[in-house]
């Protein structure tokens, strides 16, 4: 049991961060507005959680311009993918154990 809990990642222990990672796992890139729509959160809230994930190198930020409009897209890093996978496996094990 303790072994499994070790793999539960505190970073993902929040609905918004969990949501960001879930969306990025199945898409090559997702832009800010799409993430906002999917998760139904405010700009500020989303930005702060994105920053959190960026700080631990789980996601990558790419800024570019489409015409004159700035467009920021996000993608998951190798490390982020690995950690999220571990987290999901641990969650599944915990559910199956009980």
């Amino acid at each position: 049991m303790k072994d499994i809990l070790k793999h539960i990642n505190k970073v993902f222990d929040h609905r918004v961060r969990l949501g960001i990672m879930s969306a990025l796992m199945v898409n090559e890139t997702v832009d800010f507005n799409t993430l906002k729509e999917i998760l139904g959160v405010t700009d500020g809230n989303l930005a702060s959680h994105i920053k959190g994930l960026e700080k631990v190198n789980y996601i990558k930020v790419e800024k570019q311009f489409i015409g004159k409009k700035p467009n920021t897209t996000y993608s998951v890093t190798k490390l982020g993918k690995l950690e999220f996978q571990k987290h999901i496996n641990a969650l599944e094990k915990l559910i199956n154990n009980n």
Binding site: R15, G19, S22, A23, V26, I38, L39, I88, L91
Partner: peptide, 19 residues
């Protein structure tokens, strides 16, 4: 435990919804 299950369901739903 309930929260773990809710997390998994949430992950699944967002993965589907976003892709």
């Amino acid at each position: 435990d309930k929260d773990y299950l809710k997390d998994i369901l949430e992950i699944k739903s967002i993965m589907n919804k976003s892709s």
